[in-house]
């Protein structure tokens, strides 16, 4: 049913997200795009060097997460999956939606697990994506 799936993660909930994605794909040949967005925005008055350090740390973290996704999706048991990874920079929700539009994906898989306090204080990427996604979304509830 879904031929091109975008799997987005910020590092949290990776295991349940992968589990649900594999369950959806089953034995069908599918293209999976793994995406991690480095959020580079920092508050006013953040020193430039520390901003650079933060971006570098997040890029390293993103590369590690994408590498572990690659390992899972390209394992011999999932030979029918064609996996591509993307490390982007910007606002996570905007970049996920933009990539979904540009790549013409059929489904976006995201995790969601924040409680109401966290959502109020930190915001929610999944909520923002839900409002502007160009395709179907699978929100994996993780807690």
């Amino acid at each position: 049913m879904y031929e091109k799936i975008l799997v987005a993660t910020m590092g949290e909930y990776l295991d349940p997200i992968l589990e649900h994605t594999f369950d959806l794909i089953q034995e069908r040949p599918t293209e999976v795009i793994g995406i991690y967005v480095v959020e580079t925005s920092v508050p006013f008055l953040t020193p430039k060097k520390i901003k650079e350090m933060m971006a570098k740390e997040l890029r390293t973290k993103g590369a590690e997460i994408l590498a572990s996704m690659e390992q899972e999706f390209q394992s011999p048991t999932h030979y029918m999956i064609n996996f591509k990874k993307m490390l982007l920079e910007g606002d996570p929700a905007d970049e996920i939606v933009k990539t979904a539009e540009k790549k013409g994906v059929d489904l976006i898989v995201l995790g969601t697990g924040k409680n109401i306090v966290d959502k109020k204080l930190l915001g929610s990427v999944s909520e923002k994506v839900v409002h502007s996604a160009p395709c179907t979304i699978l929100l994996v509830r993780t807690s």
Binding site: G11, L45, T46, P47, I50, M54, L58
Partner: peptide
């Protein structure tokens, strides 16, 4: 201490915990 506040808060929100406590 405003620079410490912006760095510590934003790095904690981004999950960069070492930078947060280390700062």
């Amino acid at each position: 201490s405003i620079p410490e506040l912006v760095v510590t808060l934003s790095s904690a929100m981004k999950g960069l915990h070492d930078l947060s406590i280390g700062t």
